[in-house]
Design a protein around this nucleic acid. Structure first.
Length: 276
DNA sequence: GACCAGGGCAATA
DNA sequence: TATTGCCATGGT
């Protein structure tokens, strides 16, 4: 155990496996904002936390310490996981992103966020999601808004989302919001990851890569390995010199890392994206 | 002013 | 089943 809960604060003591920068910049999260060089605000669903970096620890200020203890996956020892994943191919990535936590994000927020993410860059994804939240989300502080509910997302039409800069993804948001309201079951707990992936892919705007991101970040399915342009580079370096179809590359990478594929993917993605 | 971005869809073969 | 062109928009 490397954390302590107090009233309104969680203290994470082990900075060899908990670093603000690695957590927010490794590509899993879009709702964060640096307040100064050592302070960062994260909004998840309808909850806010403030992370502060200190010499020997990181403090997490929030109203709901139980929620964020789970959110930051604090009961898991990531140094143990890194020990299992460590080999000549992963060594540098594990060290580079040593402070990563796999955030347990809200399924609805993850679903819509990663529909927005397709063929898009991270700064623009962040600004679009901020716009969605400000225009449709519940106000939760003087300056902050919750991620919109499915009901509010379904209440607007395609033109509204185009005006927010969503482009051709506008219809995906409208269609998916209506599907969920119409009874699409977001409880995937009884399904295998392959079954869950197939079901998510019946939603418009959700293909193999986005489905894997939703499973990994929204459902804590660690046996998936989302493959995008960076995943392709990782495949070429670690598995084979030539690229294959994204489905086959994802399968090969899953096969290589097994139940820890999702962790491996995050360390490798973050390392590749910042070093190549 | 290209080129790219945490890709997916629909039309082809 | 596997490939190909297109898609809106803004960051770099």
């Amino acid at each position: 155990m490397f954390f302590k809960k107090e009233v309104g604060t969680i203290v994470a003591y082990d900075k060899s496996q908990f670093l603000i920068r690695d957590i927010v910049e490794c590509g899993q999260l879009f709702r964060f904002e640096y307040l100064d060089s050592s302070t960062c605000k994260i909004i998840s669903k309808n909850k806010i936390c403030i992370l502060k970096d200190a010499p020997d620890c990181v403090t997490i200020n929030c109203d709901d310490t139980d929620y964020f203890t789970d959110y930051f996956d604090l009961s898991v020892d990531y140094n143990h996981i890194k020990g299992i994943l460590k080999d000549a191919d992963t060594d540098k990535a594990l060290e580079f992103g040593k402070g990563i936590r796999m955030l347990k994000q809200d399924p609805v927020e993850t679903l819509f966020s990663f529909i927005v993410s397709q063929n898009n860059n991270i700064p623009r994804i962040k600004s679009i999601i901020a716009g969605l939240s400000e225009s449709l989300g519940e106000k939760i502080s003087d300056t902050d808004y919750a991620f919109p509910s499915v009901e509010s997302l379904a209440s607007r039409d395609e033109n509204f989302y185009k005006s927010l800069g969503l482009g051709y993804r506008a219809e995906y948001i409208v269609d998916t919001a209506r599907r969920v309201l119409d009874g699409f079951d977001l409880d995937l707990s009884r399904l295998s990851s392959d079954e869950a992936r197939r079901r998510l892919m019946t939603l418009k705007g959700v293909g193999p890569k986005v489905a894997d991101c939703i499973l990994l970040f929204g459902y804590s399915r660690m046996d998936v390995f989302p493959v995008d342009t960076w995943g392709e580079k990782i495949y070429r370096d670690l598995i084979a010199g030539d690229a294959s179809s994204s489905a086959k590359m994802a399968l090969a990478l899953r096969d290589r890392f097994g139940d820890l594929a999702g962790y491996a993917q995050q360390y490798l993605f973050y390392y590749y994206r910042n070093n190549f």
